[in-house]
Simulated assay, not measured.
Amino acid sequence: MRIVFAGTPETALPSLDALVASRHDVVGVVTRPDARRGRGRTLAPSPVAERAVEHGIEVLKPERATDPDFLQRLRALEPACCPVVAYGALLRREALDVPEYGWVNLHFSVLPAWRGAAPVQRSIMAGDEVTGATVFSLVEELDAGPVLGAVTERIRDDDTAGTLLDRLSLEGARLLVDALDHIEVGDIAAVRQPEDGVSHAAKLTTQDAHVDWSRPSFAVDRQVRGCTPAPGAWTELDGLRLKVAPVTVTGDDTLAPGHVAVTKREVRVGTATTDVVLTEVQPHGKRPMAAADWARGTNLAEGAVLT
């Protein structure tokens, strides 16, 4: 089956690689235009664009998916189906109607839970025990199309958004190829999403990553891990921002929320329930470092409070 793949970030690479290795013919790739990246802010292609070039696949980079030149080229490629993974732009009816079997999206949650831009992060931060990936037929309403298949994945105690998304991207790639195999054969039917159980996963803001020490330690732990690696959890000490890596929850309730206690081996912070231990921090303008090293170098005053 002739397909055109749409995706942009590294998360989409396992799916692109799996499709190239499959029986399907990837005749084109659609991705976001080159963007400025790194300290030099130089224009660079997306990870998907770079991988497509490595595979010798034509790359399309429309500013908008409604651009006439893009739509003309998409029609000329004659895809039977267009799989999508984290493309990052809305697809309107003009594009959706091009392939015979439509556009098929891989989304990193078990729909209808966590529709939107940050399903993995929001799932962790909400305290979910299980998440997964869903392949569904794309419609104009956000992540609301009928489901073609899903897999589930337990959220581990040490998962960050980064580690969980890495696993889901691999599992999801296999699911996506399997769905396309069945679409080609014609022995799969899309199932309408239930109307109950819908939740929304808005893109994380910097404020979402501001650690709230007045919450229970479980919630603090999940907030930090859900914001790792991006946008990165943070707190403040004396008005200066301090980035915080995933913490360790203890069974001790010895400190008031936000209050810090330093020993030779660890740095503890109080929450609404039990204390947590900081593992790694990054002071403003400096490199990440072990929390104990930071505390010694900062010479924290007794009674210091993170806000």
Rank of each mutant, 00 (worst) to 15 (best):
V281H: 04
R36P: 02
R92S: 03
S217K: 04
T254H: 04
L142S: 00
R268N: 09
S109V: 04
L43T: 07
L138S: 02
R2F: 06
L138N: 07
A44S: 11
R225P: 09
I124F: 06
D253K: 00
L142Y: 13
A230K: 14
V220T: 09
E236C: 07
A89W: 02
P283Y: 12
E171M: 00
S46G: 03
W294I: 04
L90P: 06
V247T: 07
V249R: 14
K264L: 05
G172L: 10
A21R: 15
E141G: 00
P14K: 11
S123K: 06
L165Q: 15
H107V: 08
V53T: 11
R122I: 09
G102I: 09
S46F: 06
D34A: 11
V30I: 14
T205S: 13
R167K: 15
F70P: 12
T66Q: 06
L91G: 05
K286Y: 05
G7S: 11
D159G: 03
V130F: 09
P146M: 00
L176G: 03
Q207W: 05
G232F: 03
G258D: 12
M125D: 13
R156V: 11
Q223F: 11
A304D: 10
T42H: 13
G258P: 03
T250N: 06
A133H: 09
E195H: 10
H107M: 13
P14M: 07
I183V: 14
L138K: 03
L164G: 10
A95M: 14
V269M: 02
V110T: 13
G145S: 06
T279L: 03
G239F: 06
D69R: 02
R156S: 12
L91R: 00
L71R: 09
R222A: 15
V249S: 01
T298M: 11
D159S: 08
G28W: 09
R93H: 15
